[in-house]
Simulated scan of single mutants.
Amino acid sequence: MQTSLPQPEQRKQASSPSWLNSQSLQVARFTLYSYSRSGWILLDIVLVWLIHQLFFSSPQLTSAQFFGVAIPALSAEAIFSTLILTRRAMKANLYLPLARLTTRSTYLNGIILATCALRIACYLLLLLFTTALPANWSYLLSSSPSVLLISILCALLTIAFSNPLATTTARIIFLLWIVLVLWSNFTQTSGFVQYLKIFQLPLQPVAASYQIVLSGTIGAWGWVGLGIIILYIAITIAVATYWFSKRDLHLT
């Protein structure tokens, strides 16, 4: 029996899957539904509420204090939440839907869309909880992109370096870079340690974005920082897609 070849439209879709592909959206909806039905979504709500109670319950809260703390707090929550979501989505019994998709990357795109939607929802929930935040729309509009982009980047890095996408070697190299960054940041710049500052260069766009939330205005370097973070996100997605496709060769 001959196997029928895919139609031209299918081959075109397989070679260049779109983010607005209905299959990716279906995977995203399925991932969020499964995550919510399992009850893990309640953990996100509780963590966001704890962030509010620990840092933003003061009636004298300022916009700079809120956004300055929201970036590291929501980024940490994003890493923890995405670890759970990704581990659930990458279970062996959930590989069965892959056979019905046009490309394997469509499944990963759906997980990424679900993760981004969850990050936006958690940020909006934190804003809803924080009633003491001054109603400064200019500050809100200028600072929100930094909070969202950095938390989304942390979430996507978590996906990219999770199992089964990244290899053990890739994880070790990434963790080694984090150790060198922390070591160079918390150690006096003398002798050999001062040369380790070069490992902090990839974080300069994040630092520029952090300055935006402290000042409430976006300067030239702030726009550059946001643009580079968007580039980081695109590179992370591309690398994760490549690793996932390469990993699939061993799974088929």
Rank of each mutant, 00 (worst) to 15 (best):
L43D: 01
A73T: 13
L32S: 15
D44P: 02
I45W: 02
A70V: 05
G68F: 02
I45Y: 08
G39W: 08
W40F: 15
L54I: 06
S38C: 02
F30T: 13
I71C: 07
S58Q: 15
A76V: 15
F55C: 12
P59H: 12
W49P: 00
I41H: 11
S58V: 12
L32T: 05
I45K: 00
L42R: 07
L61W: 13
S57M: 11
W49L: 14
H52Q: 06
Q65W: 13
G39M: 09
F80M: 13
F80C: 11
G68K: 07
L43C: 02
T62D: 12
P59E: 05
L32C: 08
I79H: 02
F67Y: 15
I45V: 14
I45M: 08
S57F: 03
V48Y: 05
I45F: 07
L42D: 07
L42A: 13
E77G: 09
P59M: 09
L32M: 14
S34F: 10
L42Y: 10
I51R: 01
S81E: 08
I79M: 09
L32V: 09
A78L: 13
I71R: 05
L42P: 04
G68T: 10
S75E: 06
I51T: 12
I79C: 04
I45A: 14
I71W: 02
I45G: 06
Q60H: 12
F80Q: 11
I41P: 00
A76W: 10
A64Q: 15
S57N: 13
